[in-house]
């Protein structure tokens, strides 16, 4: 991986579509991010460029998380409680949670995991085991020390476009 960079507080906040300038885009392919996730250290995350697609103009582009500035970093880390809704669909395969462009953890069917959030604006997305088919995706804002709970579910379609 030639483009690999280690950063402390990755964020997608402020990244817009290069064609129309919209911030309503989503990651559609996470090739290489699982290998990168295994190289994370205590403080730093290994980031990789991921393929994203604008939901307004449908333009595909590469997106790389950037280091969050001081106003964006939380004084006290928040917690995300991610719960994968138990379903027969995909029951035997694990899914992965992408938080701010970094694969945080794997999540089994019906499992609940806790993820530390360091930035104010959060981008979360659940991916399937092959890292191409995407499921739940959401952007939200958190306050320092807040605990946010989200139910993640797998979609029965390849892509939501």
């Amino acid at each position: 991986m030639a483009d690999e960079v280690m950063i402390k507080n990755p964020t997608y906040f402020g990244i817009v579509c290069p064609k129309c300038g919209s911030d309503d885009w989503r990651v559609v392919r996470t090739k290489g991010s699982l290998e990168a996730a295994a190289l994370n250290t205590v403080d730093e995350y290994m980031i990789t460029p991921l393929k994203a697609r604008c939901r307004a103009c449908h333009r595909a582009f590469k997106v790389v998380p950037v280091e969050a500035d001081e106003s964006e970093v939380l004084s006290q880390p928040a917690t995300l409680v991610a719960h994968r809704v138990s379903r027969i669909t995909g029951i035997v395969v694990p899914n992965y949670i992408l938080v701010n462009g970094v694969i945080s953890d794997s999540i089994a069917n019906g499992e609940e995991i806790q993820i530390e959030l360091r930035t104010k604006h959060v981008y979360i997305q659940m991916f399937d085991a092959s890292m191409t088919g995407s499921a739940t995706f959401e952007r939200f804002e958190v306050q320092p020390g807040e605990t946010v709970k989200r139910d993640m579910r797998i979609k029965a379609r390849w892509r939501s476009f």
């Binding site: 027969i88 669909t89 995909g90 029951i91 035997v92 395969v93 899914n95 399937d128 085991a129 092959s130 890292m131 191409t132 088919g133 797998i154 029965a156």
Partner: peptide, 10 residues
């Protein structure tokens, strides 16, 4: 198909 309904398994 339903048990492993993602990517390669699908």
């Amino acid at each position: 198909y339903y048990l492993g309904k993602n990517g390669k398994s699908r």
